[in-house]
Amino acid sequence: MVRERTQDVQEEAEKVQAILSSMADGVLVTDAEGRLVTANAAAEELLGFRWTDVAYQPVSRSGLTHPMWEHVAQMIRHPDQPGNVVVEFPSPVDDSPQIINARAAPIRLNHDIIGVVIVLRDITALKEVERMKARFIAGVTHELKTPLSIIKLHVENLLAYYDRLPAEKQMELLHTVQNQTGLLDRLIDDVLTLSRLDTVHEAEWQTVNLPELVGGVVEELRALAQARNLTLTWQASEELPVPVIPDQFERAVRNLVDNAIKYTPAGGEIQVAVRQELADDQPRIRIEVRDTGIGIPPEHQQRIFDHFYRVDTSHTTPGTGLGLSIVREIVNAHGGSLHVESTPGAGSVFTILLPLHTPADTERAEQ
């Protein structure tokens, strides 16, 4: 009977240990004297220690160096107080910022506190998402405010002085309002596009002839290039069936060609090409948009894909600052990569490198 009971207790202990080991959150358990009774693997990884080295030692005197231990010790000293702290510090692995949320609760037996359980959660990624969201909202607010302010000012002037303004001035103000309204429309469309990129269903993937898709975009924009006295050439290759999300990929190519048209002075040339190539013996697609435009200074080349980042801070060239970030998101969703090479005053080359498979194909092959 005793043997069976002992075996039951051992099995229960093993189950508890298995549960702790499988948890993504770190767990620390101390007794009433503040000694570390147990810790799971997640806690060891988060705080950079081994439980076997400090087992059943008081946390305050165990030589533990991670800054989080100061907060753990504080929670243990006051087990009857609600414990919930968020602490940011350098990661013990690579000194990158790490944010840990620690929550403590007393362990009670017959109304007596016999220990403390502390749950540690790494919320670094969550906080970074919150920061990105805040920056994005701030960027949207700023970009919306500028055209709205201009529209408001011109409408007020028209309402107050319409009868006294010459016809040419009236038309100038109305055209400005029209242009700013168009900018607002493009900005809202770009923001909605970014929000939709995370909600793509597998059914939206289609195998298309990529040169035909890219060529269609080039033909759509040819009149715009001609109006700016630019030469837009299209180098087609053989038929290349490629799985893509057609609407999104058209948008990515259109943004790149449209950018080239915007930033290439009259008399310049824009070349668009699609071809298949081998990289490490693996086939891939290369799409290039090459222009003879104003180019991009080196210090800006890594940031031009950020939301709302613009090299032209004076906003003399119309745009929302989201075009290239949309291209990057779309290319990433297709498992590809986006690159830029540019020389100020000589032009730029934007390159999309695309594998001949979709991320969904890769996921299915691995299952």
Rank of each mutant, 00 (worst) to 15 (best):
V311Q: 11
S195M: 15
I137Q: 12
K127W: 07
V214H: 00
D258A: 12
L187I: 02
I188T: 05
V86M: 09
V208T: 04
F249I: 05
T233M: 09
L210P: 02
L47T: 00
H315T: 03
P344V: 03
P79E: 02
H357N: 12
Q271E: 09
D190N: 15
I287Q: 03
A160K: 12
P246Q: 12
A346F: 11
L240K: 02
E204W: 10
L324G: 01
T181N: 10
P106C: 09
V340W: 08
T233W: 06
H78S: 14
R61C: 09
R108H: 11
L64C: 03
R254L: 13
V2R: 11
Q17D: 12
A223N: 10
L338T: 02
W69N: 12
L356C: 11
V59A: 04
P211H: 04
L183P: 00
R328W: 07
L197R: 08
R61Y: 06
D25C: 04
Q282E: 10
E299I: 03
F305Q: 10
V191A: 09
L194S: 08
G319V: 01
A236K: 06
T207M: 14
I330A: 01
D8A: 15
H66W: 11
E4Y: 09
F49S: 00
I113P: 11
G347E: 04
V331C: 08
L173N: 01
G321H: 05
D361H: 13
F305E: 00
A104Q: 04
T207W: 10
L183D: 00
T146Q: 13
P90A: 10
I19N: 01
N229M: 15
L224Q: 13
A13D: 06
S62G: 13
T181D: 04
M1Y: 11
P297C: 08
R50T: 01
I245S: 00
P344Y: 12
R121K: 14
S325T: 08
Q81N: 15
G323L: 07
D185K: 13
Q282R: 13
L192R: 12
N40E: 11
R310H: 05
K169N: 05
A360H: 10
V155Y: 01
L148N: 14
D198I: 04
Y263S: 04
N179R: 13
L240N: 02
V274L: 08
T343H: 15
H315F: 13
E202K: 10
I137S: 14
Q226F: 06
G323H: 05
L184R: 02
S342W: 05
L20G: 03
G347P: 12
R35S: 06
V9N: 07
T233I: 06
D190Y: 06
M1N: 06
I118V: 09
N259G: 06
A273N: 09
I99E: 00
K133W: 08
H201S: 14
L20M: 12
E12L: 15
L353A: 08
I123K: 00
V72A: 02
V208H: 05
A105F: 13
G83T: 01
H111F: 10
L148R: 11
P97L: 14
V217A: 07
A73R: 08
A346R: 14
R186A: 10
E366F: 07
E156F: 03
V54F: 05
A236F: 03
A236G: 12
A43W: 00
M132Q: 14
L47M: 10
S348L: 08
E143A: 15
G83Y: 02
N179H: 11
D280G: 05
